[in-house]
Simulated assay, not measured.
Amino acid sequence: MSFTDCIKQVHRLFSCLVAIKLHGHFNHTAIAQQEKAMSTPAHQDAISLLEADHREAEDLFAQYEKAKDAEKTEEKFEIARKVCAALLIHMQVEETIFYPAARAALDEEGDDLLNEAEVEHNGAKDLIKQLGETKPDDPMFDAKVKVLSEQIEHHVDEEENELFPKLKKTDLDLDSLGDEMAQAKEDLKEQLKAWRYSGS
Score class of each variant (00 low, 15 high):
Y64W: 03
A67P: 02
A67M: 05
E71S: 09
E74D: 14
E74H: 14
E75Q: 09
F77Y: 11
E78Q: 15
I79R: 07
A80P: 00
A80R: 10
R81S: 12
V83Q: 06
V83W: 09
V83E: 00
V83M: 04
C84M: 13
L88S: 08
I89Y: 08
H90Q: 05
M91F: 09
V93H: 09
E94S: 07
T96E: 08
T96D: 08
F98M: 14
A101F: 10
A102I: 09
R103P: 04
R103L: 13
A104C: 11
L106Q: 08
E109D: 13
G110H: 03
G110P: 11
D111Q: 15
L113G: 04
E116P: 11
E116M: 13
E118V: 12
E118N: 09
V119M: 15
E120P: 06
H121P: 08
H121F: 05
H121R: 03
N122L: 15
N122W: 08
A124W: 02
K125E: 13
D126I: 05
L127S: 09
I128N: 00
K129G: 05
Q130I: 03
Q130N: 11
L131F: 07
T134Y: 02
T134V: 03
K135Y: 11
D138V: 00
D138A: 06
P139L: 00
D142A: 02
A143P: 04
A143C: 06
A143Y: 03
K144E: 12
K144R: 15
V147S: 04
L148P: 01
E150D: 12
Q151F: 05
E158H: 02
E158S: 08
E159V: 03
P165D: 12
K168D: 07
K168S: 09
K168H: 12
T170N: 14
T170P: 11
D171I: 00
D171Y: 14
L172W: 11
D173G: 10
D173H: 04
S176N: 15
S176R: 15
L177R: 06
D179S: 10
